[in-house]
Design a protein around this nucleic acid. Structure first.
Lengths: 232, 232
DNA sequence: TTTTGTGAAATGATTCACAGCC
DNA sequence: GGCTGTGAATCATTTCACAAAA
């Protein structure tokens, strides 16, 4: 494979490996074989070996991978060697839940600014921050050098926030609103949609009831996590 | 293509088509060409035509697809011709936000039972339901014939809920906890993990800063997708 | 003329299988 | 003996390009 280029499917699995390795690290289990890591992550061992080979030769034949070292390499690769300030657009109950949620507890991602256009929410305290109006967005994004933002607004204002965030310099968006965002080239969008996810599940249930009762019918993209299609 | 078999990638796009078609239907735009639908959904026109061909011949050459008819076919296919009772395991702030959210407003999915193991939460009112302890789970799942569940618990109890739900008869799980769930064959799991999603974004940002400044580096799985909930 | 539906080609991802190293 | 890393094979998905339909 071409150096410097890691395939989307592989990128989608790196967080899974991180999660699995963290569990193993806490248990003091090291080294780990691709087979063992396969048990922990649910990803096939050959895929794991190929994915890891993209990050450089990391394992020792006959032994396996050193858990701490591997965790370090993957973490660095996905950018966890630094802390990322994140902007949140939309402070409804989902936005509020997200600020509390565990993902931010690890300190690699910090909510650095919260915006909402509803006057009843502007000024609310969020930890040591407060909810700001859209007018403040461009200056704050630049001042705090924020490049990642989460959109947790209503569907009808999601594109508005996306446009404003991108214009201000944000190049990665995590969208929770149920709309397809239009963004310029070079801006990465990950969308997480409860409706879509649950529809995929009801599709699965519908197939199980319609097609024969074959329990081995396997629908779903295998990605453990959000995605795409291709999820993921 | 083999009848009865729709590829995972296609399934992941059906909700996108539904969303796009709903927009077009509200605008009274019909018929729609694959090219037009491509503009609205961000999915390529040839992919759309092939995906739709899996559902049976639906379009009229030279004209396009009838929006209402197409919406009906896809909706039926993903199981939206009936209503699905859904169980929620874990009633923390995320769980609470999910019950409020838009995804459930369309009445195809209704929260039919809420469970939590924290005594301080058991008994809380959730609409006309109340939060129940794990001991009540098996009977309720059977009684209400629930086959789809959402896990919105902490990471450390997610597997516990998954095991209990599956044993009670649930065959589709939507997991919001940042762990890889182990489930038997035939059980479908979709995982939505804020941490993973945001790590994929920080990977993107890291690559942009590391590799040349090429703005066209395209990471991510291409799913435009979108998804879920607004912030009422 | 417009647009679908689909073989055929191209691209991408996963698995196999084994040489080479510890 | 055990396990990694990887070329080759397999499998899946996407795109191309065009014949047939309206």
């Amino acid at each position: 494979m071409k150096p410097g280029r890691i395939s989307p499917s592989t990128v989608a699995r790196l967080p899974i490996y991180i999660k699995g390795l963290q569990v193993l690290a806490r248990a003091g289990e090291s080294p780990v074989s691709s087979e063992r890591l396969a048990q922990v992550t649910g990803v096939g061992a050959p895929r794991i070996r190929r994915d890891l080979s993209y990050l450089g030769a990391l394992g020792t034949p006959g032994v396996g991978y050193d858990v701490k070292e591997l965790l370090g390499v993957i973490s660095r690769c996905v950018g966890l060697s630094r802390s990322w300030p994140v902007a949140l657009a939309g402070y409804g109950s989902l936005g509020a839940a997200l600020t509390v949620y565990g993902g931010f507890a690890d300190r690699n991602f910090q909510v650095a600014a919260v915006f909402d256009s509803d006057p009843r929410r502007i000024g609310l305290k969020v930890g040591d921050l407060e909810v700001l109006p859209p007018a403040r967005l461009p200056a704050i994004i630049k001042e705090k050098e924020i490049s990642i933002a989460i959109i947790a607004s209503q569907a009808d204002s999601a594109q508005y926030w996306a446009d404003m965030l991108v214009k201000a310099g944000v190049t990665s968006l995590l969208n929770f609103a149920p709309v397809t965002l239009r963004v310029p080239r070079g801006v990465e969008v990950r969308s997480v949609d409860l409706t879509s996810e649950i529809q995929m599940l009801s599709f699965h249930e519908t197939m199980k009831r319609t097609n024969g009762t074959s329990g081995s019918l396997h629908i779903g993209d295998g990605r453990h996590l959000s995605d795409s299609m291709g999820d993921k």
